[in-house]
Amino acid sequence: MTRSHIRWSTIATAILALAPATRAFAQSCAMCASSFGVNDPVTKAFNWSILFLMAAPYTLVAAVGGWLFFTYRRAAGRSRASVGRLPLATRRGAPADVPEEV
């Protein structure tokens, strides 16, 4: 059995195992199921609020993380473009400023 066969059989097993659970995922808790109807405005209000609150942290983390990523990347590009003179190792006895032949 090749590695590709193992991978595909693992994916197929996972799908088969999770398929019966899809009905369970669609259910809500007992309280929500009994309190709110399908076209109830309270249901609509809770749905929008949950969506908003779910999106907020991801948006914030993505915005701040993206800004930090690009700021650091830009700074790294700038520092690469202007590499300063590094201190050089010298042979014993040689003047300190003479660069060593590599």
Partner: peptide, 20 residues
Amino acid sequence: TGETMLFAGLIGMYLIFRLS
């Protein structure tokens, strides 16, 4: 960022009362 999350919570609360 922390303050924004505080206001996100308040806006979420407002949306529930406003829409319901």
